[in-house]
Amino acid sequence: MSAKYLISAPSVLRPGTPTSLAVTILTNDPVRVTAELTNGNTSLVQAESTFTGGVTGVLVLPPFPESSVDQRYSFKLHVWGYQRERLVFINTTTLRFNPRTFSTFIQTDKHNYRPGDTVKMRVLSVQPDGKPHKGRVHVSIRDPKGNLIQGWPSLNSYLGVVSKEFHLSQTTPLGIWTIETMVDELTTEEQFIVDYYEPPHFDVQVKTAPEIVMVDDLSGTVTAQHTNGQPVQGTLSVTVTLVSALFNSGRPTIVHNATKDIHGSTQFLISQDDPPVRQHRATDLSNSQHHTNGILYITACVTEMSTGEVPMYDLNLITLLQENFPTMQEIQLCSVFEV
């Protein structure tokens, strides 16, 4: 066994979803790669393909039904590499199994509120392939003591999205409030803070394209102005976070962070050749299908130089598409949440 190789695989398996492996052969000669998923002593699925040396390709294992697995036993991925009939490498790794077939995200228009404010929220449910999940949505709001203050049972979602508003009274209890959602018996929580605080003296806005292809550079404009229209001078921090049902088990993952000066307005560019982005693309390739999308959160934080005022934020959402994404209708669920 002598061939050098690099194979990236998702750490979590989901039923009914294909499993993609990113395969790179680090030799000149082609290698035939065979992969198999097992559950205990049972073979779930297999796939095989030949890969050219020095080129990264994708080997897709077909989906398997949840009824075919026994969670009492471990899940393992086995790979073999052959040059002609000679075995040149072999490897085995243990994977985790997640029976969830969709993920739910709760978004609010901001994190901190004052008594008398209105909380705007949105619940987004997506399947592992990036398409909307259209289950019934139950939403409830609890105060810092856990008391149920407002509830909306059995809401119909539109393209996997439910939007609601909740008004905080002037005598609202201060502290950490909780938004709870239940979609097809899957429970998700998100928290926000109610407290007295000084309202912002300047606004921050982020403008980007509504969607990008995975191989594109990401660019945009950040504008920071006082309420009287004067420009804000200070420091800008731009953070790019990926949320994908197939990447990192659906948890938000920071793929880039950059800091620069700002005087009223400035542009930013995140190149696909930057090391953190390039590393993410190589990893995400093994977790995504050619028709899968994700959501990029672009967070802009501006700290004013003269006053040292607490940083102000703006959040923008971008749909991340594969090159041959079939339609544009399915990305409407990723539109910007209006503040």
Rank of each mutant, 00 (worst) to 15 (best):
S169D: 05
Q127M: 15
G229Y: 06
Q233G: 12
K207R: 08
G130D: 09
G135I: 02
V183A: 07
P132L: 05
V194S: 05
A209M: 12
P153R: 09
T259H: 02
L186R: 12
Q233A: 12
K164C: 07
G220T: 12
L174F: 08
T227Y: 09
E180H: 07
D129T: 08
V194F: 03
L236S: 03
V162F: 00
Q150T: 09
T208D: 04
T259D: 02
P144I: 03
G130M: 12
E180F: 01
E185W: 07
K131T: 13
L236C: 07
L218E: 07
T187Y: 12
P199A: 10
S163M: 08
T241I: 14
T171K: 13
Q127R: 15
T181P: 01
V206D: 00
E198G: 06
K131M: 13
L168F: 00
V183I: 15
I262P: 02
E189G: 02
Q150G: 03
E189F: 12
H138I: 00
D143S: 07
N147T: 08
P199Q: 06
D216Q: 14
Q191C: 03
H133L: 06
T266R: 03
I176W: 07
V161W: 00
T171H: 09
V204S: 00
N156Y: 06
S163F: 01
Q205S: 10
L186Y: 12
S249F: 06
P153L: 11
T259C: 04
E165I: 09
T188W: 06
H167S: 14
T181Y: 02
F247T: 09
L148V: 13
P173T: 11
I193A: 03
S237C: 05
S265Y: 00
P144C: 04
G234H: 05
P231E: 11
T181I: 03
S154M: 04
V243T: 12
Y196L: 14
T172F: 04
T241M: 12
I141K: 02
T259Q: 11
V194C: 05
E190A: 14
V139C: 01
H256R: 14
H138D: 01
T253W: 14
F166V: 01
D184P: 05
V139I: 15
G175D: 04
Q127F: 13
I193Y: 08
Q205K: 14
K145N: 11
I179M: 00
A245I: 06
L124M: 13
D184S: 14
E198W: 02
S219E: 13
T235R: 14
F166P: 00
D143T: 02
L168Q: 01
